[in-house]
Computed example of a mutant assay.
Amino acid sequence: MAPSSTQTPALSCTNPTSGFEAALSQRAVLLPQHIGQTFQLSRYPVGESLAPWAEFHWIVEWDLPEADCHLQQVLPYPNANLAFEAGQTAIHGPSHGLFTRELRGRGRVHGLRFKCGGLRPWIECPMSALRDTVVPAIHCMPHGSDIARIEAQVLNAAHHDEAIARVEAVLSERRPPFDPWVERLDTAVHTIQEDRDITTTRALLQRLNLCERAMQRVFSNYLGVTPKWLIQRARIHDALQCLAVEHETPLVQIGARLGFFDQAHFTRCFRQHTGQSPQQYREALRTESRVRSIRE
């Protein structure tokens, strides 16, 4: 699926698409201090054969003492993912809530993140049908694929590049026709994530040059989420990043900068997406930093 209390460290990434893309990956992780400490997060670009539909491979690895258990939470992006995990390989649709994973012992998960809308040409239903669901991986693999065998080959690969090559070889066997909507929507979503001034659906309508009804229909079909939710999720990701690096900035200033009407609006939206208030999350970050300082 950062030891410093004054700055957020770089991810363990190889050839990321851009520096901004690496930051995007990190700001989705709650309590990002654990990256590089409790678990390793690596990311690699996709090859040309999958580039029209997928963004990158991500690999999470951990090796914890036998008695240790770590509960990691991630606030997912609106992308669908194909995740190879021991006995649990599956497609994860866009998720409205937090993704929580318990890490024990030693393990690895190899994921392929599709572009926003990139999974739609591979499946026979609108993405709204996959919202908050996990479905069998066979839906995007060649007919008759031995999922257990492919899973073992990917997860037991000696090197990341071997695992990546195996994933891409399998999926390349049933690539769907090119769909121009994928690139158009993926570009729009990245614009929302990069531009904090986009805080309303009206601003998004102007970027896509669509009427509101058409935009709602396209989002349901290709993304599985509403435009309003997408904008809110992007701004909450911004908030997580701000809280991780701006330890003393008043919450009201952070909320105003991200386009929330007032502190109550900011708190309500933050709680809807993360299950806690901005102040509670800030306190959790401080507690984690103090614990790590004691251990070190």
Rank of each mutant, 00 (worst) to 15 (best):
W122F: 15
L103Q: 09
H139F: 14
H110G: 01
M141V: 01
K115C: 12
P142F: 08
R104K: 14
I123F: 04
G117H: 03
M141H: 04
H110A: 15
C116V: 15
A129F: 04
S128T: 13
F114G: 00
P142T: 10
C125E: 14
M127S: 00
C140Q: 05
H110F: 08
E124C: 11
R108W: 01
A137V: 13
V134D: 02
R108H: 05
K115T: 11
E102N: 05
G105I: 10
G118M: 03
C140W: 07
K115F: 06
L130G: 01
C140E: 04
R108F: 00
H139C: 08
R104H: 09
F114H: 00
P126H: 01
W122K: 03
G111Q: 05
L112G: 12
A137N: 09
F114T: 01
V135C: 12
R106K: 14
R131S: 15
R106T: 15
M141F: 08
V135F: 02
K115Q: 15
H139I: 14
G111K: 10
A137S: 11
T133N: 11
R131D: 05
R106A: 10
M127H: 00
M141W: 03
L103M: 11
P121C: 10
L112W: 10
L119G: 00
R113Y: 04
C125N: 09
F114V: 02
G111H: 09
E102M: 13
P121I: 06
R120A: 06
D132R: 10
F114D: 03
P142L: 12
V109C: 13
A129M: 07
G117A: 07
G117V: 05
S128Q: 14
V134T: 07
A129Y: 05
F114P: 03
G111Y: 12
L119Q: 00
I123A: 07
C116E: 05
C125P: 00
C125L: 14
R120T: 02
P126F: 01
E102D: 08
R120Y: 01
I138F: 12
I123H: 04
P136H: 08
L112R: 03
A129D: 13
K115N: 07
I123M: 09
R104Q: 08
P126C: 04
R131N: 09
V135A: 12
R101E: 15
E124I: 05
L130I: 06
G118F: 00
R106M: 09
